[in-house]
Design a protein around this nucleic acid. Structure first.
Lengths: 228, 228
DNA sequence: AGAATAGTGTCTCTGAGACAATATCAA
DNA sequence: TTGATATTGTCTCAGAGACACTATTCT
């Protein structure tokens, strides 16, 4: 091989940002404004700048396009997509490093400096909608990764605000997994896992018996895992 | 941001190729021949060519540098390493897409068209040896991924030739995990998982009672998993 | 009181792990 | 026979899941 055959590529960081809105799993999507693909939906993301790592670029894009502040979200690298011609919008070769971000319920994605604003879209809808290049695949991989991470880690709490009831935490699992869970067994399992949640002592009143409030604990991994 | 700030990068595919030699986990390493880093050890790998996906490039490099034929190995994407200045050998920015490959016992890595030959090195040794750029990190991530994959998948059989005894399969787990497993429980667990292994009916004679021979079954995932 | 929601008790079943017991070979 | 290795039996314990039951509120 000669050096001229070497690929020189643009590198993008794209993010599957998930949140829960009204008990439904939503993903952040942006509307492309550039000439070729005007109006097409895509995952938020953009090109790495000089001196930027992929993770830094993903954090920046998340802030610019989705309005999520740095530090609010933890990023999880999903994988890299490098099929030739995956991006038909550019003549240059583009490879994309995908990240997963799980965010707490947010009022509305805010328009950033970039093109159009990001909007939260129910994952079910997003999956049936035509997305830019291979973003449908990336989204699918992201959702599957989110499902797997709920089993072995405590990330479910990052879908929720500071304090939450057991019912709300269970709703996260049910929305992401798309299954119903037994309230009794779920409660025992969660409270029986040291460091998953901490009781605040407060309660939240609703229709029936008041629900105890919890906040996220210090543990990060679940062992044994919560089974789907 | 202006278009000129965009990163233009070289993209490499690097492989953590693991095999078992005399019951010890080994990784393929190559000796760099290029001017700057002459003599330094590195993971096999190389730059993507025009029109090549990362997986194709990884397969090609595995064939060229380690002598593993296409189709003999299944590749598993580990992650992408994109820290600026991670590669001090080139002035261009280099990002690397890492893959994990598990191979059956092989006579010796063969020299390919590339520079020096790859040599199998015990993972313990490789970890203490200085490796090129961030390859020590990639190796560590690869070994950890291999450990995790043994739990949930049947890949352990790809470390072995066509037929093997239960003892040999158990040795794979023990070498990769670095723990001892109970022969009785391991035997029951493996034979009790449909599709993991199939008895050939043959036996292999050794010091004591002959051991039944098995071949890999059709299953790919283990459920419930084998616990470390 | 009655409806609604939160949380506990209890039973069963599966599977992991410890370890004893048996099987089948070579020397 | 003895020693070595392979395989099966058996017991115990932890945890998942089903589901009945109790607790605490609102209307």
């Amino acid at each position: 091989m000669s050096t001229e055959d070497r690929l020189v590529a643009w590198v993008a960081a794209d993010i599957v940002a998930l949140t829960l809105r009204d008990g439904v799993l939503n993903v952040a999507l942006v509307k492309r404004a550039a000439k070729a693909a005007r109006g097409q939906w895509a995952l938020p993301g953009g090109f790495l700048l000089q001196g930027e790592s992929a993770e830094v670029a993903a954090t920046r894009e998340l802030e610019e396009e989705v309005g999520l502040g740095r530090g609010e979200v933890q990023l999880d690298q999903l994988g890299t997509y490098s099929t030739p011609n995956r991006d038909t919008e550019h003549v240059e070769r583009v490879i994309s490093i995908a990240y997963l971000a799980l965010a707490a319920n947010l009022p509305e994605a805010t328009a950033g400096t970039d093109a159009s604003a990001a909007t939260w879209t129910p994952v079910g809808q997003a999956m049936t909608r035509p997305l830019a290049c291979d973003h449908a695949q990336i989204l699918e991989d992201g959702v599957e990764r989110a499902r797997a991470r709920l089993e072995y880690s405590t990330v479910a709490t990052s879908f929720l605000d500071g304090t939450f009831t057991m019912r709300e935490l269970r709703a996260v699992y049910e929305a992401v997994w798309g299954t119903d869970l037994d309230p009794a067994n779920f409660h025992r399992k969660v409270t029986g896992t040291a460091g998953f949640v901490e009781p605040t002592g407060e309660v939240r009143r609703g229709r029936g018996r008041p629900a105890a409030l919890f906040r996220a604990g210090v543990a990060e991994s679940l062992n044994p895992p919560l089974t789907r």
